[in-house]
């Protein structure tokens, strides 16, 4: 492993932060969702990195499950977005504010 681990981790950190930025700043629900996927991928990179460092395949197993869950999440999330669009004719995240206190 000629590239030391901290580099991979730094890349992962940067991607994660980018994803966070997207969630905070963008208003389109689809883009927010994609930012979340970006964050998930960053985490996957971290997990695989550490699996390699420790020499144990468990980290990869976890990534496997993250993949599964991300897939299921995307499916249902998009279905919800579709429903909201049908009801409100918008995918603007700020328009969905009925759960206010």
């Amino acid at each position: 492993m000629s590239v030391p681990a901290p580099f991979y981790l730094a890349l992962s950190a940067a991607l994660f932060a980018l994803g966070t930025l997207g969630v905070l700043v963008r208003r389109s629900a689809l883009v927010v969702f994609m930012s979340v996927e970006l964050m998930l991928n960053a985490v996957n990179l971290t997990l695989v990195t550490f699996a390699r460092v420790r020499g144990a395949v468990d980290g990869q197993i976890v990534v496997f499950f993250v993949l599964v869950v991300a897939a299921a999440e995307v499916v249902i999330g998009l279905a919800i977005i579709v429903n909201i669009f049908r009801a409100r004719d918008t995918v603007d995240v700020d328009d969905v504010d009925l759960l206010r206190g």
């Binding site: 969630v23 905070l24 995240v93 759960l99 206190g101």
Partner: peptide, 17 residues
């Protein structure tokens, strides 16, 4: 405190962050 619950997803995300 309930005034914190604006219903805006992005504000909640900000608080979490």
């Amino acid at each position: 405190l309930s005034h914190l619950e604006t219903g805006y997803l992005r504000q909640y995300a900000t608080y979490v962050l």
